[in-house]
Computed example of a mutant assay.
Amino acid sequence: MEKPTRIGLLGKGIVLTLVVAAVAYPLLGVIGTSFASQSDIIKSPGLVLWPEHPTTEAYRTVLGGGVVTHALLISIGVTLVGTACSVLVTIGMAYGLSRRDVTGSRFILMTALLTMLFDPGIIPKFLTVKELGLYDTLASLVMPTLVSAFNLVVLRSFFMNLPEELYDAAKVDGAGDLRILIQVVLPLSKAVLAVISLFYAVTYWNAFFNAMLYLNDSQNWPLAMVLRTFVLQGQSLEGASAGETLAPQQSVQMAVLVIAVVPILCVYPFLQRYFTKGVLTGAVKG
């Protein structure tokens, strides 16, 4: 609680400046390179922080081919549907496990926690997905990761920390468990719900490993899989117009990166005020 010294404030300012520079430089470099022309790429062997001849040719090449646009729509759909399903299932499980009178709740909770410690492995998960008829379908991107044990524990801790008098008062008024959950618990849980929704959304948006395992048809690939195939493996985008003057490959790669990052950057500021409060839920008791 002591007042910080000038040296301390100076040290914090220097460290914060270095951290911001370490984060901002590659981000600005990716954005600048995506707008760079061929002459800018030749002049600067690495990332182009400030292109002298900015052009949107890379974005026209990316969006004009149709591959990235199609993958973007798939990622948006999978993220929205997957996040909604995951949040609903997590809410139901967390509320049930937070009630002490539910039979077998401790066994179910321990089973969920075991998934955080022991991974079944790639082959068993692949065989399970195939036997359930989910192979080569978009459902394979959602069902294997429907519930996160970490998010379940966070939400359960929040529900358990709510005053028991709220539940008792609602029961006295004749409310059942479903009505208590919808009208009493959920309105008080906006912060933690925003945080776990963000966690789920980022997981679905960035997931490429499940797509690589379970999707054989490239028409069903999400944006993360297209990003990995094109940027890391250097394969060209299909569907570009014949005879069209394409942008430099490095600029096109950075344009795909920008398109993949922008949606999360647009959503995060709206959830930022809930983030700290939601993450610390259950950290302090009493």
Rank of each mutant, 00 (worst) to 15 (best):
V252G: 01
S241C: 02
T128F: 13
Q249S: 10
Y204P: 01
Q183W: 12
K277M: 07
H70C: 04
A283L: 14
F270D: 00
V19M: 09
A224I: 09
V81M: 10
V62A: 12
G92S: 11
A255K: 12
A207N: 13
D119C: 03
V195W: 03
K285W: 05
S241Q: 15
D101H: 09
S39M: 03
A242N: 05
L280D: 13
Y59C: 03
Q249L: 04
K190N: 08
I74G: 03
Q249F: 11
T56C: 01
S140A: 15
F209N: 04
V184G: 07
P120Q: 14
V89T: 13
F199D: 00
G234P: 03
F208K: 01
L88S: 15
L88T: 12
I31F: 15
G234F: 06
P263Q: 01
L271E: 09
S75T: 08
M254R: 05
L114W: 04
A112H: 10
V184L: 08
C85I: 13
P51M: 04
A224W: 01
T111A: 15
L215S: 13
L97C: 08
A201H: 01
G29L: 05
Y200S: 06
I182T: 08
G286H: 07
A36L: 04
L113F: 14
L27Q: 08
P187V: 09
A36Q: 04
C85N: 04
F275R: 09
A240V: 10
L246F: 05
L246P: 00
L257Q: 10
T79P: 00
L18S: 10
L73S: 05
N161E: 09
T69F: 15
I196G: 01
A139W: 15
Y274N: 14
L232I: 14
L162S: 02
L237T: 05
L138Y: 10
I91P: 03
L28S: 04
G13D: 00
S37Y: 09
Q249K: 08
Y200P: 00
S197H: 05
A207Y: 02
S34W: 12
I123T: 15
P51C: 05
L138M: 05
K3L: 11
L193M: 11
K43M: 02
A255H: 09
L162C: 03
T33M: 07
S140C: 13
N210L: 10
T90H: 00
T245Y: 07
A207L: 02
F208R: 00
L232C: 00
A194G: 11
Y167P: 00
V102N: 06
Y59P: 09
P26R: 12
K12S: 09
D173N: 11
E165L: 05
L198I: 10
A255L: 07
S251C: 03
